[in-house]
Amino acid sequence: MVAPPDNDVLWARALHFQHNGSPALTGVSLGVRDGEILAVTGPRGSGKTTLLSCLSGLLPAQSGEIWFNSKPMHTMRPMRRERLRRERFGWIDPVPHLVPELTVWENAALPLMLRGTGRRAARTTAREWLERLDIGDCARKRPRGLPAAARQRVAIARALAAAPTVLFADEPTASLHRADRAHVLRTLTTAARSHGITVVLATTEPETATLADRSVALLDGRCVQTVHLPPAAESEGRAACSLSV
């Protein structure tokens, strides 16, 4: 076993993962430095979500190594990984999976309360984050009554309120319109930078990746630096559409 570099908060080597036999990750290696925003780009189906799940300990890597703060995650028991997720990691889904019966502030305070923080302290922190994300006025509402953008902001507040070491954002803006998208991303990156939170951001869009410090491109379950696709053939002498069924 090779110990990972010291300045990497997360470090993965030769990750392999298959979903019921269909390969999702085929030998991905990457390192995430402390406090940086790392964009994982790639088209749909390139293994971004699987990579984030493996890095956050949701899925056990089938082969390969993952180190978090120089501790091996690939050998941890599920219970320890769960605790790690609860205490050190945050997660944002593409669609906000909030608990429908809790109010907005309770949703945002949930990770803190799961860690054992008192109700009053958790509430103060959650409300602060909701204010920062411009949804302080719906703190007492249920998520069902809110528009999608507001719900996504609640999910972001929930992830940030717990002050995680690493925040995994799996296409956090996938279900939003462009105006909301820009706002949500800006809030997320600004908050992460000002609080020193490391962010691993999966995205399909190149313009989202420009907000990140560094980006890693995935294609068909591999890390790629440059994509070598066959060059487009000259159109002369070829029918524009020669599809025959």
């Binding site: 699987t50 593409p94 669609v95 999976h97 998520p143 719900r151 996938a174």
Partner: peptide, 22 residues
């Protein structure tokens, strides 16, 4: 329901569920 948690929406947002597929 226009709720964020559509009951029929995918295998509980499993790792294989691509964003926006719900």
């Amino acid at each position: 329901r226009d709720a964020p948690t559509g009951p029929g929406a995918g295998p509980a947002g499993g790792p294989g569920a691509e964003p926006g597929a719900e």
